[in-house]
Amino acid sequence: DETGKFLVLALYDYQEKSPREVTAKKGDILTLLNSTNKDWWKVEVNGRQGFVPAAYVKFL
């Protein structure tokens, strides 16, 4: 159920650099879980949760 969740689009490829991050490919649609940090947003992609740089994604 996606009610109340926001989707964001990956603008660039991002390769995770730590276990707390997730890899995303340009064009991926990610479920935004938390955007309270202006630099790192928590997302879910391909069943995995983790952080990506906020500058790499935008709201749909």
Rank of each mutant, 00 (worst) to 15 (best):
T3S: 12
L7I: 08
L11P: 01
L32R: 01
V8Q: 01
Q49S: 10
N46Y: 07
E44F: 06
F6L: 13
Y56L: 15
L7F: 15
Y12A: 10
F59W: 09
D39Q: 11
K42N: 04
K38T: 10
Y12T: 05
V52F: 15
K42A: 08
R20G: 15
K17T: 11
R48W: 07
E2W: 13
R20A: 11
T31Y: 11
T23G: 07
V22E: 03
P19L: 09
N46F: 08
A55Q: 10
N37Q: 08
W40Y: 05
E2I: 14
Y12C: 15
F6G: 09
E16G: 15
L33E: 00
L7G: 02
I29K: 04
E21A: 05
A55C: 14
L7R: 11
Q49C: 11
S18F: 06
N46A: 09
T23M: 04
S18A: 08
L7H: 09
D1I: 14
K17M: 11
L11W: 07
T36C: 15
I29W: 06
A10K: 03
I29D: 01
K58C: 15
A10R: 04
L33N: 00
W40K: 00
A55G: 10
R48Q: 07
A24L: 15
K58S: 11
V52P: 02
D13Y: 10
K58W: 10
A54R: 11
L32W: 04
R20Y: 14
A54N: 02
K17I: 06
S35W: 15
L60V: 11
D13A: 06
K25V: 08
Q49R: 11
K25M: 10
D39S: 10
P19F: 10
G27Y: 05
A54Y: 05
P53H: 06
R48F: 06
E21H: 05
T31W: 12
N37I: 06
A55D: 08
A24Y: 12
D39Y: 15
N34L: 10
Y12V: 09
V52E: 01
K25Q: 08
D28T: 07
L11I: 12
D39M: 13
F6K: 11
P19V: 09
P53S: 06
V45E: 00
W41N: 00
Y56E: 00
L11V: 08
L60D: 01
L33Y: 02
V22W: 03
P53N: 04
N34R: 06
K38C: 12
Q49D: 04
Y56I: 15
D13C: 12
N34F: 09
R20E: 12
Q15A: 12
S35P: 06
Y14I: 07
Y14F: 07
L30G: 02
V8Y: 06
K26G: 04
V43H: 01
Y14C: 12
L9P: 00
G50V: 05
Y56V: 15
S18N: 11
T31N: 06
D13V: 08
V52Q: 01
A10S: 04
K42V: 13
N34P: 03
E44A: 07
V8A: 05
Q49I: 15
L60Y: 11
S18T: 11
W40H: 01
K5I: 12
K42E: 14
P19R: 08
T36N: 12
W41K: 00
W40E: 01
T36V: 10
E44D: 07
F59R: 09
K5S: 10
S18W: 07
F51E: 02
D1S: 14
V22R: 02
A10P: 01
V57W: 04
T36K: 11
E21F: 08
A54T: 05
E21V: 04
A24S: 04
L9Q: 09
Q49W: 08
N37D: 14
S18G: 13
P19G: 08
S35V: 09
V52G: 02
A55M: 10
K5A: 10
L33F: 03
K58V: 14
V52H: 01
V22N: 02
Y14W: 10
T3H: 14
V8G: 04
T3E: 12
Y12W: 12
D28G: 04
V22Y: 03
Q15W: 13
S35K: 12
D13R: 04
L30C: 08
K5W: 12
G47L: 05
P53K: 07
P53Y: 10
G47Q: 03
K17A: 10
T23W: 06
Y14M: 03
D28E: 12
G50F: 07
L7E: 04
E16K: 14
F59S: 09
K42M: 15
Q15V: 15
G27R: 03
T36H: 11
W41Q: 01
T3V: 12
V45G: 03
Y12H: 09
Y56G: 04
I29Y: 05
V8L: 15
A24H: 05
K38M: 09
G4W: 12
K26T: 07
V43W: 02
E44T: 04
V45P: 01
G50P: 00
K25E: 05
A55T: 11
V57H: 00
L32G: 01
L11T: 04
G27I: 04
W40S: 00
L9R: 07
A10Y: 06
V57E: 00
V22I: 14
A54K: 06
V8P: 00
V8I: 08
K58L: 13
E2P: 13
S18P: 03
T23E: 02
D1Q: 13
L7T: 08
F59A: 10
F51R: 01
A24P: 02
F51N: 01
P19E: 11
A10Q: 06
L33S: 01
R48A: 05
V57P: 00
K17G: 07
T23I: 04
L60I: 13
F59Y: 09
E2G: 14
T31K: 13
Y12Q: 11
E44C: 12
V43L: 03
G47C: 08
V45C: 08
K5G: 10
D13L: 08
Q15N: 13
L60H: 06
G27V: 03
A24V: 15
K38R: 11
T3R: 13
L32A: 02
L7D: 01
N34C: 13
G4S: 12
D1Y: 14
G4C: 15
L9S: 02
K42Y: 15
L30P: 00
V22F: 12
L11R: 04
L33Q: 01
K38S: 11
L33T: 03
V45W: 05
A24N: 02
R20H: 13
G4T: 12
L11A: 03
L11Q: 03
P53D: 02
K17N: 09
Q49E: 11
S35H: 10
L32K: 00
D28K: 04
V22S: 02
A54C: 09
N34D: 15
R48Y: 06
G47H: 03
N34K: 05
K26E: 07
F51V: 04
K42P: 01
E2H: 14
K26S: 07
D13K: 05
T36D: 14
V8S: 00
L32D: 00
T23Y: 05
V45K: 07
G27T: 03
N37R: 08
Y14S: 02
Y14A: 02
W41A: 02
Y14L: 03
K25C: 12
L9E: 10
D39A: 10
A55W: 10
W41T: 01
I29F: 05
R48D: 02
Q49P: 04
R48C: 09
K42G: 03
A10G: 02
D39W: 15
L32S: 01
K5C: 15
G50W: 07
G47T: 05
D39L: 14
W40P: 00
K26F: 06
T23V: 03
G50Q: 02
A24C: 15
K5V: 12
Q49T: 13
K25G: 04
N46M: 08
P19A: 10
Y14H: 03
F6D: 06
K25W: 08
T23K: 02
W41L: 06
L30I: 07
Y56S: 11
Q15D: 14
T31R: 13
V43P: 00
N34W: 09
D39G: 09
K25A: 07
L32C: 07
R20L: 14
P19Y: 10
F51K: 01
L30H: 01
E16N: 05
V8H: 04
V22T: 04
S35L: 07
K26P: 05
T31Q: 10
S18L: 07
R20T: 11
L11E: 02
K5P: 13
D28R: 04
V8M: 07
V57S: 00
G4I: 13
L11F: 05
W40V: 01
V45F: 12
K38W: 07
V57N: 00
V43D: 00
S35Q: 10
